[in-house]
Amino acid sequence: MSAKVERIILAGFGGQGVLFLGRLLAEAALKADKNVSWVPSYGYEIHTPTANCSLIIAENQIASPMITVPDSVIAMNTPSLNKFSQKIKGGGMLMYNSSLIDRQEFRDDIRLVEIPATDMANDLGDPSLASLVMAGAYAKFSNLVTYEGVEEALRKLLEKQRIKEDEINLNIEALKQGFKYVEETRYMSGRYAHAVFRGI
């Protein structure tokens, strides 16, 4: 992943929160004084199993907000993984929701990050928190947004929507668990080493 720009495609079923996840990382990037663009799928596409958004975070001005070759893909379900994983830049990252996606043969030139996001979200009592688990995990890998930045952005976004304090804390807990999951799992010895772990 280049330090100066991160091109991310986030995809999943409608309702899995991929648009919100992109929006959250975008807000965190803006707070960190980065340039950012967020392009959602909409209309017909949002009703398909590969609802997605294209997020670019950059130090410099962003020319095209469209992503042809993503640095990272965050896939919340199997159709999304199938649709986008082949497009990832060599040396890029595929982060996927291993609660809903079975391990399969993948390209060996990308970094794989398995996060059992839906299981972790269910343990917290709400499967819709899975996208926040992913956001926390992504913050660990990003050079342009920090975990603290994402947490602050999440709090602000939820406060604006007048969400109750204990619900906000639950959302932040999901974020934190995603971050910790990546931090505590030792699989990053080789740069593009496959992740071989499951469960927490």
Binding site: R23, A26, V36, W38, V39, I62, M66
Partner: peptide, 8 residues
């Protein structure tokens, strides 16, 4: 695209 996208 312009109408749906977000930018600062």
């Amino acid at each position: 695209v312009l109408a749906q996208m977000m930018e600062p």
